[in-house]
Write a protein that binds this DNA or RNA. Structure first.
Lengths: 213, 213
DNA sequence: TGGCCTGATATACCAAGGTATAGGGTCGGC
DNA sequence: GCCGACCCTATACCTTGGTATATCAGGCCA
């Protein structure tokens, strides 16, 4: 587990991007009323310049942003590796817009006027989704860290072991003696903290998604 | 592989449910023009009573159906284990409708008037999605069939082997001699057509989704 | 009743995996 | 030049896994 797990329970945040100050404030106050921590921004740029908390969060986005559209910004975020769940709100939306947003993975698409509870529900769904994603990422980061601690040879051996090759076959493939393979293999098990071969296989598969098919 | 793989390339179908005969016919003719096989139905019931081809397909659904709404029918299909991708078309849709449909996994939600090409693209996406799903299901069916051929004891042993237990530990857990475990284990490898332990582990994990965490 | 499947067990043997100890070499940095 | 990494190998020993052959018992069904 990472250091994060040892910290106090993380407070989720809700970033709000809307160019209308009164809307920002009313959304912020609504979210505060249910115990969530709002982070209001007037533009996408402002949001990007601000350092996001290292905690589960959610983004409430007006479709019509100053400069670019919220839909474009959603794509931009995904491209930049920022995987914050997005809840769209809009005053002048249409069906194609909402479909595009949902296809791109939006949590919800709310047309004004919407019920406060609908927004709150959507935000909670988004936060929960982000929490899950972060948990998965944390676990993967751990594994990736261990994998980085392997030497190149150890990585080769790990791959072949996970592929089901016998030590003998691995030795032939890598032009090594069988004993050398055993040494590397033991290092792999120790460094990857795998308690059994099935354990190692599962770790290897998590590290190489799409390796099947 | 299943028998299906040995057959000629499967012709995808497109089921159309719309109570307006002229719309049915125009949709059907549009789809025929691009080489797809339309199956027009006037109602959800008619669709359900008809035997669907055993081939990849897609469902074009009017949101406003006689009797029930297309959205309800979409949920009903999922509940009944019919996982046909759905493309919605509608003359009187709104944003919440489209969002609900997309959340439930719809491929597309098109408001009339829409461009012919948009419908064709959506249908192709749906068919491709169904083809992938069917491929995955076929592979799983194969594995499930093999698993069914295991005796109860063999299944127990398989689970413990995949969990990383040693033969000795498995024997203790099941109150068996180690030699008996080996016999069952060998049967498992043979019946499941696993060529190595990692192979068996991956098979076991495919058969027990959600077994991790 | 006899045949078949399932399950359990044993002996014996061989192959594969794992560990410990003890070397050897290259290469890059201090 | 020494140190530390990475890499390779070997001997020796033990554990675990895999296979073959054979036996025995209960349940089920024709």
């Amino acid at each position: 587990m990472t250091d994060r797990s040892a910290m106090a329970v993380e407070t989720p945040f809700v970033a709000i991007i809307d160019d209308d100050p009164s809307i920002r404030e009313s959304l912020a106050s609504l979210l505060r009323s249910v115990g969530l921590a709002p982070l209001p921004f007037a533009s996408a740029q402002e949001f990007l310049h601000h350092r996001r908390p290292d905690a589960p969060g959610c983004l409430v986005l007006d479709v019509r942003l100053p400069g670019q559209s919220g839909l474009e910004f959603q794509r931009e975020l995904a491209g930049a590796g920022i995987h914050l769940p997005v809840v769209f709100i809009t005053g002048h939306g249409d069906i194609p817009m909402s479909v595009t947003a949902m296809k791109a993975g939006a949590v919800e698409f709310l047309a004004k006027p919407f019920r406060d509870q609908d927004l709150i529900d959507a935000v909670h769904t988004g936060i929960e989704r982000d929490r899950d994603r972060r948990r998965a990422m944390d676990a993967l980061s751990d594994l990736r860290g261990r994998f980085r601690s392997l030497t190149p040879r150890e990585r080769e051996v790990m791959g072949l072991v996970a592929a089901g090759q016998l030590n003998k076959q691995i030795a032939a493939e890598l032009r090594l003696s069988e004993i050398t393979v055993k040494v590397h293999r033991a290092s792999v098990m120790r460094k990857m903290q795998a308690k059994s071969l099935p354990d190692l296989v599962r770790i290897a598969d998590k590290l190489a998604p799409g390796g099947d098919s």
